[in-house]
């Protein structure tokens, strides 16, 4: 029962060793990471993705609930006057959870935090009534920053004002789409992290230190079996190509090993007709065997379908 005296010393040494290791690998990096300021990319991403795109209690089955909408506005939703340039705003309808940067402006970084709170009034945003956010430019202590502006507080634009004037083609469901990206495991093959090699030439620049503030999960991916997607929207911005590629990747790339995501279309197509998947697959098999000259047409997706969100998300990766 009684041990050696050395075991007491050993237990203490063990505590020191593991504690020291955790100090170096957790505490020290946390000082660095906490001081990182958000880039414009990080601000846009968190406003577009919302609070959380992995499992959370507001979207327990990961169906894309509780997500904001991105809206491109051409005119002031209150007065109807044309805006100087197209403005992208992010609409959080009543009850939608706010992203980390609104709840904890400290994570936005020096300057951005102060501007977002003092001039952007992000602290006045209320989940019970919803809010509309956009990115604005401002000056803090002589330096220019992009900050988050709560348009509901500064201009009185409510979510229903904005959605009233928004046409369907001006609305982006990229927040819901990021949930689909995580749920469907796109990131098991497609990384969101071009590597520090000649990879840059093909897939674009790797991300900057501040590109992730407020994003969860980051879903970098580690096991790349397919092209990097961080800037895919800049390489290919065709909705039609994306539609065919998601429905059956072999329609546009015969050697692709990507799975078919036709099930994300749901039951009905854009005109409300039931999609006959069995017929489509049978006709596609005939095409593949050379019995048909052209493959069957890909059904157009409904505006509330899961694939709509995923395509919006992929195209938002500029």
């Amino acid at each position: 029962m009684a041990g050696f005296r050395e075991y007491k010393i050993g237990s203490k040494m063990f505590g020191i060793a593991l504690g020291g290791s955790m100090t170096i690998t957790l505490f020290f990096p946390s000082i660095n990471i906490a001081s990182v300021s958000s880039t414009d990319i990080a601000l846009t991403k968190q406003l577009q993705m919302g609070h959380e795109t992995g499992f959370n209690l507001d979207d327990p089955m990961m169906l894309g609930w509780n997500k904001p909408l991105g809206v491109t506005l051409k005119a002031d939703p209150k007065t109807g006057q044309a805006l100087a340039s197209d403005t992208v705003v992010f609409v959080y309808k009543k009850g939608t959870s706010f992203p980390a940067g609104i709840l904890h402006p400290r994570i936005l970084g020096e300057g951005i935090q102060q501007l977002s709170v003092e001039q952007g009034h992000v602290g006045d945003a209320r989940k019970e009534v919803g809010a509309v956010f956009t990115l604005s430019k401002g000056t803090y202590q002589g330096k220019q920053y992009t900050y988050i502006e709560n348009l509901t507080a500064t201009k009185g634009w409510t979510p229903s004002d904005v959605m009233h004037v928004a046409k369907d083609e001006d609305v982006s469901n990229a927040g819901k789409g990021k949930t689909m990206f995580v749920r469907e495991g796109c990131w098991w093959c497609h990384t969101l992290l071009p590597e520090e090699t000649q990879d840059w030439q093909v897939f674009g620049a790797p991300p900057m230190l501040g590109d992730f503030n407020g994003e969860s999960p980051t879903a970098f991916g580690s096991d790349r079996k397919a092209p990097d997607l961080l800037h895919v929207g800049s390489r290919n911005s065709s909705k039609e190509w994306m539609m065919m590629h998601f429905f059956n990747p072999r329609l546009v790339q015969p050697h692709s090993i990507m799975p078919r995501f036709d099930y994300l279309w749901g039951e009905k197509d854009a005109s409300g007709n039931k999609i006959d998947f069995v017929k489509w697959r049978a006709e596609y098999d005939e095409y593949r065997e050379g019995k048909r000259v052209t493959p069957p047409d890909v059904p157009s997706y409904a505006s509330d379908s899961e694939i709509r969100g995923l395509i919006d998300f992929v195209l938002s990766l500029k």
């Binding site: 990182v36 992995g54 969860s216 999960p217 970098f220």
Partner: peptide, 14 residues
């Protein structure tokens, strides 16, 4: 996941 830490903190702790 417990405290909704985001960004690089989330990536590094993963």
């Amino acid at each position: 996941e417990f405290f909704h830490l985001t960004g690089l903190t989330e990536a590094y702790l993963t």
